[in-house]
């Protein structure tokens, strides 16, 4: 790896992927046992909490990854599809997060469904995307959206491997410096 990646800033991407792996693991266990399990039993509560905190760290590190890549202008050098793919991942993740909130099967999810349906209806998407339809939201959340995310992450990682990490900006004197030498 090039010397300029010697900085903690470059770990935000892999931390996002790690959080996603935890989401898949805990989500699979939650889907096997179902809502009455994750709301009632102690072990169910535990995995419900793991899933919740995994999504917190998923978005936390995704945003930090976005900030880092923005300030590096990481779309340079033919990496535009890596950048666009990252945005696509962010947007699909938001929909995955919304359908996750709606899949909780508690007062929160009912409240969000009832309030959110008006927003979706105002866009004209209500006929296809019904926030009050638990089966549709749950199916999207545990199958369709994770599959889309897996494909997009695979493409994103492939592009990062193909093009490599973006080079740092040049200094005023024309030389490069590593991120770890900036302080």
């Amino acid at each position: 790896m090039p010397i300029y990646v010697n900085s903690y800033v470059y770990l935000f991407g892999i931390l996002t992927v790690t959080s996603f792996a935890w989401l898949i693991i805990t989500g699979t266990i939650l889907s096997i046992f179902g809502p009455d399990w994750w709301h009632v039993s102690a072990v169910g509560h535990f995995f419900n909490s793991l899933h919740f905190w995994s999504v917190q760290s998923f978005f936390f590190f995704m945003i930090l990854h976005l900030w880092a890549q923005f300030f590096m202008a990481s779309w340079r050098g033919g990496r535009h599809f890596t950048w666009i793919g990252g945005w696509l991942l962010f947007l699909v993740s938001i929909v995955a997060g919304l359908t996750g909130y709606l899949s909780q099967n508690n007062f929160d999810s009912q409240w969000i469904g009832v309030q959110g349906k008006d927003a979706i209806n105002s866009t004209g998407l209500g006929g296809f995307f019904n926030l009050l339809n638990f089966g549709q939201m749950y199916g999207l959340h545990i199958f369709v959206l994770p599959m889309v995310l897996i494909v997009l992450i695979a493409a994103h990682l492939f592009l990062v491997r193909k093009h490599g990490v973006v080079e740092p900006y040049e200094d005023a004197d024309g030389g490069e410096r590593s991120a770890s030498e900036n302080h």
Binding site: S7, Y8, V9, F60, L64, A68, A179, H183
Partner: peptide, 10 residues
């Protein structure tokens, strides 16, 4: 966390 990641030596 962003600032710490930038400042902390790797």
């Amino acid at each position: 966390v962003f600032i710490i990641a930038l400042v902390l030596p790797f």
